[in-house]
């Protein structure tokens, strides 16, 4: 089910939160948002099922744009965010 690499979003920074539970993936997003420029993409890789809900909810609450989910080479879910402000 892994999409080919060209179907994946081209992100400026990818955070590896594979092994940590929520809320850590969202905490890492908040910590590293300013490591990318406005308009660039930031992604978090997380196995925790809560991330699928919490990353879009975080974007909504913090005024960022949730781009969508894709999958890494090793099949882990990856959630992609565009920094808006």
């Amino acid at each position: 089910m892994t999409p080919p690499p060209d179907r994946r979003h081209d992100v400026a920074l990818e955070l590896d939160c594979r092994e940590v539970p929520c809320p850590m993936p969202v905490i890492e997003l908040a910590r590293h948002l300013r490591d990318v420029e406005v308009g660039e993409l930031l992604a978090v890789v997380a196995h925790d099922p809560a991330a699928a809900v919490d990353v879009p909810a975080w974007c909504r609450m913090k005024g960022q744009h949730y781009v969508g989910a894709d999958v890494t080479d090793d099949g882990a879910p990856r959630y992609v965010v565009r920094r808006v402000g």
Binding site: C22, A50, V53, D54, A57, W58, M61
Partner: peptide, 9 residues
Amino acid sequence: LEAMGVLTH
């Protein structure tokens, strides 16, 4: 919470 699309943590 998941179905509503609101923060679960």
